Amino acid sequence: SEYETMLTEIMSMGYERERVVAALRASYNNPHRAVEYLLTGIPG
């Protein structure tokens, strides 16, 4: 799925699956924002 592709691409940058899933959830599946959250911390 498109979601799995995003997940895999972000994980390939060296992040753990659960952190990527949390970041995508926080960003409403916006991959650019999710990466930003992984770099700066997930808000909330």
Rank of each mutant, 00 (worst) to 15 (best):
V20P: 00
R33P: 02
S12W: 05
G44I: 13
M11N: 01
A23C: 03
R25W: 07
S27P: 00
G14Y: 06
M13C: 09
S12N: 13
R33F: 10
G41Q: 11
S27R: 02
N30S: 06
R17W: 08
N29L: 08
G41W: 11
E2A: 13
M13K: 06
V20G: 02
G14T: 01
V20F: 06
L24T: 00
M6E: 02
Y37F: 12
G44E: 13
A22T: 06
M11A: 04
A34G: 02
L24P: 00
S12P: 01
L7K: 02
G14H: 02
I10M: 07
S27D: 02
A22V: 07
R25Y: 09
M6V: 07
G44L: 13
T8Q: 15
G14Q: 02
P43D: 10
N29S: 05
R25M: 10
L38S: 00
Y37T: 04
Y37I: 13
I10P: 00
Y28A: 15
A22E: 14
E2Y: 12
H32G: 11
I42Y: 11
Y28C: 15
A23E: 01
R19C: 15
T5C: 07
Y28G: 15
R19M: 14
A34S: 02
V21S: 05
P31T: 06
Y3M: 05
T40E: 11
L24G: 00
S27Q: 04
R17D: 02
S27T: 10
Y15F: 15
Y3N: 04
N30A: 04
S12T: 07
G44P: 14
L24D: 00
R33C: 13
E36A: 07
M13P: 01
E2L: 12
R33Q: 13
V20T: 03
A23Y: 02
V35F: 06
R19A: 15
I42K: 08
Y3Q: 04
A26E: 10
R25A: 14
A23S: 03
S1E: 12
G14R: 02
L38E: 00
R19F: 09
V35S: 03
E9W: 15
E36D: 08
P43Q: 10
E2V: 11
Y3W: 11
L24S: 00
E4N: 08
L38V: 02
A34V: 03
V35P: 01
G44C: 14
E18I: 07
M6G: 02
S1R: 11
S1F: 11
P31W: 13
A26G: 05
V35E: 03
V20R: 00
P31M: 15
M11D: 00
Y15Q: 01
H32Y: 11
E36K: 07
R17Q: 06
L38K: 00
E16I: 07
A26Q: 08
L39W: 05
T8E: 13
T5F: 10
E2N: 11
E18K: 07
I42R: 07
G41C: 10
V21L: 09
S27H: 07
Y15K: 01
N29M: 10
V35M: 13
L39E: 13
H32C: 14
R25N: 12
A22R: 07
H32V: 15
R17I: 08
Y37N: 03
P43H: 09
S27L: 05
E36M: 10
L39F: 06
A22I: 08
V20H: 00
A23G: 01
S1A: 12
L24M: 08
G44N: 12
E2P: 10
I10V: 03
E4A: 08
R19N: 09
V20E: 00
S12F: 06
V35I: 15
T40Q: 13
Y37P: 00
A23K: 01
S12Y: 07
L39K: 14
R33M: 15
A26F: 08
M13E: 03
I42Q: 08
L38Y: 02
E4K: 07
A22F: 04
E16D: 13
H32R: 10
E9A: 14
E9T: 13
R25D: 10
I10L: 13
H32I: 15
I42C: 13
Y37R: 04
R19Y: 09
S1Y: 12
E4W: 10
Y37H: 05
N29D: 08
R19E: 15
T40I: 09
G41T: 10
G14S: 02
A23M: 03
P31R: 09
T5N: 12
P31D: 02
I10D: 00
Y37E: 03
E4I: 10
I42S: 08
P31Q: 09
L7P: 00
L24E: 00
Y28D: 15
N29F: 10
I10G: 01
L7A: 02
H32P: 06
R33T: 11
N30D: 15
Y15A: 01
E9S: 11
S12C: 08
Y3S: 03
L39M: 14
Y37S: 05
H32E: 15
E2D: 13
H32N: 11
M6Q: 04
M11L: 05
M13R: 06
S27V: 07
G44Q: 13
E2R: 10
E4Y: 11
T5Y: 10
E4H: 09
A23P: 00
P43F: 11
A22M: 06
I10E: 00
E18Q: 08
S1L: 13
P43R: 08
E18C: 14
L7Y: 03
E4Q: 09
E9Y: 14
G41V: 10
G14L: 05
E9F: 13
A26M: 08
A34Y: 02
S27W: 05
H32A: 15
S1H: 11
E2I: 11
H32D: 14
A22L: 08
L24A: 01
R33A: 12
S27F: 09
M13L: 13
S27Y: 06
E9R: 13
L24K: 00
M6L: 10
T5L: 14
G14M: 03
S1D: 13
G41S: 10
Y3L: 06
T5P: 09
L7Q: 01
Y15I: 03
P31A: 10
Y37L: 14
G44H: 12
L7M: 06
E36Q: 11
R19S: 12
A26S: 06
I42M: 11
Y28M: 15
M11T: 05
Y15R: 01
V20M: 02
G41Y: 11
N30M: 05
P31H: 07
N29A: 04
M13F: 06
V35G: 02
T8M: 14
L24H: 00
E16C: 14
V21M: 09
A23T: 01
V20I: 06
L39V: 11
G44R: 10
E9H: 13
R25E: 14
Y28K: 15
E36V: 09
R25P: 01
P31V: 12
G14V: 07
E36F: 11
V20S: 02
N30L: 04
M13G: 03
I10N: 00
T5K: 15
P31E: 05
R25L: 14
E16G: 06
V35R: 07
G44S: 12
R19P: 05
R25I: 12
E16S: 12
R19Q: 15
V21G: 02
M13T: 02
L39T: 10
Y28R: 14
Y37K: 04
E18N: 08
S12H: 08
V35W: 06
E18D: 11
E16T: 12
S12A: 14
M11E: 04
P31F: 15
M6K: 03
A34N: 01
Y3I: 05
R33I: 15
V35A: 05
Y15W: 10
V20N: 00
I42G: 10
S1W: 13
G41I: 09
E18L: 07
G44F: 11
N29Y: 10
V21N: 03
R19H: 13
P43E: 09
L39Q: 13
M11S: 04
N29G: 14
N30R: 04
N29W: 13
R17Y: 12
Y37G: 02
A26N: 06
T40V: 09
T40Y: 15
E36T: 06
I42F: 13
A23R: 01
V21P: 00
G41L: 09
A34T: 04
G44A: 13
A26V: 08
S1I: 12
A23D: 00
G41R: 07
T5V: 12
Y15V: 02
L38D: 00
G41K: 09
R19K: 12
N29T: 03
E16L: 06
I42T: 09
S1M: 13
E18M: 07
S1K: 12
Y28F: 14
T8S: 12
V35C: 09
R19W: 10
V21K: 08
R17V: 05
A23I: 04
Y37W: 09
R25G: 07
T40A: 13
T40K: 11
I10H: 01
A34P: 01
N30Y: 04
T8G: 09
L24Y: 01
A22P: 02
M11W: 03
E16P: 14
L38R: 00
S12I: 06
E36L: 11
E4P: 03
M13I: 05
R25K: 15
G41D: 08
M11I: 08
E4D: 09
P43C: 14
T5M: 14
E16H: 05
H32M: 13
L39A: 10
R25Q: 12
M11G: 02
R19L: 14
N29V: 04
E16M: 05
M13W: 05
Y15S: 01
